[in-house]
Each structure stands twice: as structure tokens, then as C-alpha cells.
Amino acid sequence: MSLAFILFFIFALIAVAGAVLLIVAREPIHSALALILVMMSLAALYLMLGAEFIAAVQIIVYAGAIMVLFVFVIMLLNAGVEERTNWSKIATYAGIPLGVLLLLELAHWMAHSAMGATLASGAGAPNEMASTQALSQLLFQTYLFPFEATSILILIAILGALVLAKRDE
């Protein structure tokens, strides 16, 4: 077993465990922390794929900025413990078997189809660390227009939020 293989399993397991915890936890802050855990282990997986810039950005933007806002809002609103409604019967009797079925189906597809085989052999994955320079050239030269359009869209969204928040005055 290679080191990368072991590390992949550790981080994948942490990600799945965090995702389950996110749903199961009753305290909103605990859910937020579990989500941060998921994002961090995803960043580690990106890193193992050779996308180190994406990994760092994933942590800075999602774990470091967006989730901080989430935690802030939860702290400020002092949101109480979630109340459990009656557990839906359909979810128990249909959801879990269907979920397991989907998982098995995916595993079967991975193991037996041609595309699954190429994926498993590592084809298509970059062999070395994708350099930050190459990424920035893509963003600021090849895809400059979509990039700028996205930033203007985000700016409009921010202005919209401002207008909505200020309406009461």
C-alpha cells in the first residue's frame, strides 16, 4: 500500500464521517464544525490530486471565510438545539436501502465498466503539481471574459444584499 493510498482513505473517511455528523448533530454549531471538517478533508484530497492552489483556496474561502460567517450568524442568533420531528417512515424504510443500492451500483460501475477502469488506472489525472502560474494564465487569458463576468455578477449580488438590508431605514 502506498502512502498516498492510505492518506486518501483517511481523508475520505473523515469527509464522510463529517458529512454524517453534519446531519446527525443537533447543536447548530456542531453541524457547522462538521461542515468545516468536510471542507478541510476535501482540501486535503485536492492536494493529493496535485491541485495545491485549489486546496489552499478551498480552505481560505470556504473554511476561512464562508463558514466563519455561518458560525457568526449562529452565535449572534444564539440558535437553540434542533427539535426532532417525527422521523419520516418513508426515509427509514425506503431511503436507507435505496442509498445502499446506489452505492453498490456505483461500486459495480467502477469495477466493471471501461470508464471506471480508466479512472482507476489514474489516466487523466495530472502527473505533477499543476502550477499556480498555469492556472492564472487560464483564468486571466483564456477564460478572461467569463471570469470578469462572474466577478460583476458577484458584485451585483453584494449590491442587491445591501439594498435589501437597507430598505427599513
Binding site: 468545516i36 473554511a63 476561512g64
Partner: peptide
């Protein structure tokens, strides 16, 4: 390779 980004990534979680 991107040491500076990683330092900022780690300090940005330090808020928690």
C-alpha cells in the same frame, strides 16, 4: 510550492 497561500489558509481558520 505555495507556502504563502498555506500560511494564509491556516491563519484564516485560526479565527475559530
Amino acid at each position: 510550492n505555495i507556502g504563502l497561500m498555506f500560511v494564509f489558509a491556516i491563519t484564516s481558520i485560526g479565527v475559530y
